[in-house]
Design a protein around this nucleic acid. Structure first.
Lengths: 233, 233
DNA sequence: GCCTCTTGAATAAGTCGTACCTAATGGGTT
DNA sequence: AACCCATTAGGTACGACTTATTCAAGAGGC
């Protein structure tokens, strides 16, 4: 059986990763490499490589004579974009979205403040462009276009902060925004207040006003958290 | 050559990971699995498993007919504790410590604020205990003991925040604190002001005062950043 | 008789070597 | 310039062997 395009490894990894993060294989349960090889109809070689990757994400632990044990949630590398994707696709997406949004609300204001100090002219220009793009797509069911601008906007801010750790959170934010748009039921157009705030943030960064940038970003974060409270359990 | 105790895989992974993150194998350089197998005197199987793990960390990219290419720094999973450890052990430790400390300064105040709301009696008790431990070891060259209390203290705050993403940053903070103590030259006892702030933070959390907890944690962060400016280039 | 310690067989992961498949590449041909 | 083919290096498979753990049975001491 060779149905996938991108290699056996990828398919098996994705399937197992999803099963584990979604709780189908609860912590403590044991997998056997031979069984997995049979189940996926691949060689043990492939399985072992997958297990090693899952092990590096601290999702499982492999011990001789006992098998591959699923580790408790607390040890997982929850910052791994792959893990985040799996978890957002799984059962506890709401909880996941919430903790990620809280993370954003801590990071992004500081990042925006730094961006107001360090952003290049180029970054300011693209930021404004993206903000205008958000305005343009904020009405009339253009959710996908809006999402694209939104992701790009936040990515620029994080990059412009000049801090590597912030910059690398761009992928995480992208996953959160995408998850919100796609999985959360969003019939309506985005909140006009949020759109305005993005425009104002672009201005604050362009004018090099760290305090304003931080304050505005905090407002955006509050809005995002509020939105979760309204739509989720 | 079989010097390691914990498996060939671990040894090879650690060596290669370190070499890549320290810039010895600059982005764009190509590794060949056969060569690596020869070099480490292990089978290609082991090398392949290692490569797969490095690939999952986005440190390398494996393509047919071309080999294993080291990817540019921007794509690395810099939140992977393993990667952090490698980078802190490598050449650009100062830069790394700085960006991680900025990250802390964004996260920990928010975490402390949440901890003041959600901490259990148990957590408050252990927090106070650790603060006292820091006081007790703050004089007389007991750096290792101090470090242990410091790490535990911050870990409790992050855990008590109730946010999973914050909690999982405990390892990162631990690496930063350990790196600061071990690699940065710290002849002297810790800053007495910092010790006092930790005691006050424990109080603020115990008394359920989010604003105070956030403010005090910001002061701790400012101190840590200042310390870096003084000691590093 | 019950408990502890030792010993040994069973087990599943770890490692190895080889053989073969497949895709990307680069050069040579038309 | 477009096409084709040999080469190359990773991808996959299989089978044999090694080693750490575990668990249980048996020996010894209380």
């Amino acid at each position: 059986m060779t149905t996938q395009s991108q290699g056996l490894h990828t398919h098996v990894l994705d399937t197992l990763g999803l099963e584990i993060s979604s709780g189908q294989c609860p912590p403590g349960s044991v997998l056997r490499t031979d069984e997995l090889a049979q189940r996926f109809d691949v060689s043990r070689t492939v399985i072992r490589e997958v297990i090693r990757v899952l092990e590096s994400m601290h999702l499982v632990e492999s011990r001789r004579r006992v098998g591959v044990t699923v580790r408790p949630t607390e040890t997982w590398n929850v910052y791994d974009p792959q893990v985040i994707r799996w978890r957002l696709a799984g059962a506890d997406r709401p909880r996941q979205l919430r903790s990620l949004t809280v993370l954003r609300s801590a990071i992004e204001p500081v990042a925006a403040s730094l961006a107001a100090r360090h952003a290049t002219a180029e970054q300011c220009a693209e930021l404004t462009e993206r903000a205008l793009g958000m305005v343009a797509t904020s009405r009339g069911q253009q959710l996908e276009g809006y999402l694209e601008h939104d992701i790009a906007f936040h990515r620029i801010v994080l990059n412009a902060s000049g801090n590597e750790m912030f910059a690398r959170l761009g992928d995480v934010v992208a996953e959160v925004l995408a998850g919100r748009t796609h999985h959360q039921v969003m019939f309506e157009d985005p909140d006009p207040a949020a759109v305005t705030l993005h425009v104002r943030l672009a201005e604050a960064v362009r004018e090099g006003d760290p305090e304003a940038a931080e304050r505005i970003t905090k407002e955006i974060a509050v809005g995002a958290l509020h939105e979760l409270d309204v739509l989720a359990p």
